[in-house]
């Protein structure tokens, strides 16, 4: 067992006892040619988002209204022959109004509240539905903030995952997204979710849908 004060004390002792100054500047090998440069600005964030997501094997589309977004989710449920869809318990998804039409189509909807065993529900569902706090155009990522009503496993356990995200939540770059949490208090879990789950461990061949969803859809509503 080590005592906290003792542990930190020995580290303090080491960091303060005459510091070595490295002689090598780290930038030698990644030689800069001229002035510092920045990435090309992103002109059309929604288009870029979809392009990036699709390059990773995900599916993105941009629709003009909530009605169209609802239709996308219904279509997906039909195509996947889903029996159970699990979704976040958030206002935006209430407004999306998929529960009724899904029910009519024979798809049970589990809303992420007061579940006896979340594992059982999320495991059984063929589709998980959520929204996202932000989306990142540069990488095709969703920024998922979890909390009450916003389960982590909704986006993880079902083989198909769909997110409905208002187009104005698209940020351009990863640093912009990280900057949203600068100096603040973070929710217990934030995830930058970028495309379908994958593994390359077998001879570098891509296997899609390793542990999380392999079938990832993002509907941008603008």
């Amino acid at each position: 067992m080590s005592d906290r004060a003792e542990f930190l004390g020995s580290i303090r002792h080491r960091t303060q006892a005459g510091r070595y100054r490295p002689t090598n500047a780290p930038d030698v090998a990644w030689t800069r040619k001229g002035e510092p440069r920045e990435s090309e600005p992103i002109d059309d964030p929604p288009a870029r988002f979809i392009e990036e997501l699709e390059a990773l094997g995900g599916h993105g589309r941009c629709v003009g209204s909530l009605d169209e977004a609802r239709e996308c989710v219904l279509e997906l449920a039909r195509e996947r022959e889903a029996k159970l869809l699990v979704r976040w318990d958030v206002e935006e998804l209430d407004e999306l109004g998929v529960d009724g039409p899904l029910g009519e189509a024979g798809v049970e909807v589990a809303v992420w509240r007061d579940l006896a065993d979340f594992r059982e529900v999320a495991e059984k569902a063929e589709i998980g539905l959520s929204t996202a706090e932000w989306a990142i155009a540069e990488t095709g990522s969703l920024v998922l903030e979890h909390g009450p009503g916003k389960g982590r496993t909704v986006t993880l356990l079902p083989p198909t995952y769909v997110a409905v995200v208002p187009v104005e939540r698209i940020l351009r770059t990863v640093p912009e997204a990280i900057e949203k949490y600068a100096g603040g208090v973070l929710p217990a879990n934030v995830c930058f979710h970028t495309g379908p789950s994958r593994s390359g461990d077998i001879e570098m061949s891509l296997f899609i849908g390793m542990h999380g969803p392999g079938d990832v859809h993002v509907v941008l509503v603008g």
Binding site: L115, F118, V190
Partner: peptide
């Protein structure tokens, strides 16, 4: 590491699950 712009799950955990959360 893997030649990606961002890894699929770049996940940030801060403490145990919060009040009212079902998983985590």
């Amino acid at each position: 590491g893997t030649g990606q712009k961002l890894t699929v799950y770049t996940n940030f955990i801060t403490g145990p699950r919060g009040e009212g959360e079902l998983d985590g």
